[in-house]
Nucleic acid binder design. Structure first.
Lengths: 176, 176
DNA sequence: CAGGGCCTACCTATCGGTAGGTAGTTTGTT
DNA sequence: AACAAACTACCTACCGATAGGTAGGCCCTG
């Protein structure tokens, strides 16, 4: 049995990943987990506070997965497939966008502190790809951008197509 | 002097491209163009009606640009740079996401008819890339997906980074 | 004088947020 | 050990603001 705070964050994440920042509400979360919307304000005073907590947990979990990938795969080249699988999980299991992907697309409509938290996710991924995935490449930075952009973009296209086909084709290309 | 309908659509597009479907409102548009929000309902009865009109005009204009590119460049290989420039325009001139990119990421929160209109944009682009950009390639479909995903993804990353650097690196890679 | 294009005025629903209360638990003091 | 103070985790009830949408009137033009 998870705590109220965890259930709030979990449900908020689900709503944001479905429709973005403006598509989640305290009332909808409250109804979903069976408490009053006012009670959410006890744990997260404002909407930005909650959204930042959601993004923070999302990034933290992502970092943990990156560590697992690094530790389980000694050679950088072995790490690409499991890295791609992190995004495959979003579209195939969660059937939702990457949280930071959908938020990034709405950047200019987000509270400033939330922008910074989302930005951190991308900086962190780009740096990790360069350092632990493309170690021996010359233009690692450019290739890292290409990889991350392809994955985020293919998630978005797969959502609107209601099919994993685009994601599968893109990930197969990336693996070659 | 543009018509009221055109000014409504223009302003709605700007708002949607900034914060997504839930971030635009009849009242904000009305205020921006100097009419009453009720007057917008005369031209577009419901919010989905207006959003669909916005997406339709966006796609229609995109198609026109694709025709120009095709007609101005006899060889498929010459068409890549101007195609990329369509997306460069979004991030460098408009300083906004691709309308259909941001809407695609919110797919499951959109009215069904709007989903179809957004989907049409991507189907159309994928088909055009395959037919007029990668004519001689074997796996044209997969490469088209890769190209479009890279461009949409790099827009989204550039927005959150508040820098064109990622878009520039990705587009340079695509051109090689 | 008919109708297109806009207006005022208003509706209901929902939003984020606040005020104040309460049951149960924990903590500090004697 | 006993008791009071304080804290946690909720609750009900409400606020002003804003959302999309509707009804009906007014004015200008053909």
């Amino acid at each position: 049995m998870s705590s109220t705070v965890e259930r709030i964050i979990e449900n908020a994440e689900s709503q944001i990943r479905t429709g973005g920042y403006n598509a989640f509400s305290f009332r909808a979360i409250a109804k979903a987990i069976g408490i009053q919307s006012a009670s959410i304000h006890y744990h997260f005073p404002t909407k930005p506070d909650l959204a930042i907590a959601v993004a923070n947990r999302y990034t933290q979990r992502f970092i943990q997965q990156l560590d697992v990938i690094k530790n389980n795969n000694a050679h950088p080249k072995e790490r690409l497939a499991p890295y791609i699988d992190l995004f495959r999980h979003a579209i195939k299991i969660d059937k939702k966008m990457c949280l930071c992907g959908i938020l990034a697309s709405e950047t200019d409509a987000l509270p400033e502190l939330l922008q910074l938290e989302v930005k951190r996710f991308f900086e962190l991924n780009l740096q990790w790809i360069s350092a632990h995935l493309l170690t021996e490449e010359k233009n690692a930075t450019a290739q890292a951008s290409q990889l991350l952009a392809s994955l985020e973009g293919s998630l978005l296209i797969s959502k609107i197509m209601k099919s994993d086909e685009v994601f599968n084709m893109v990930s197969n290309q990336l693996l070659n």
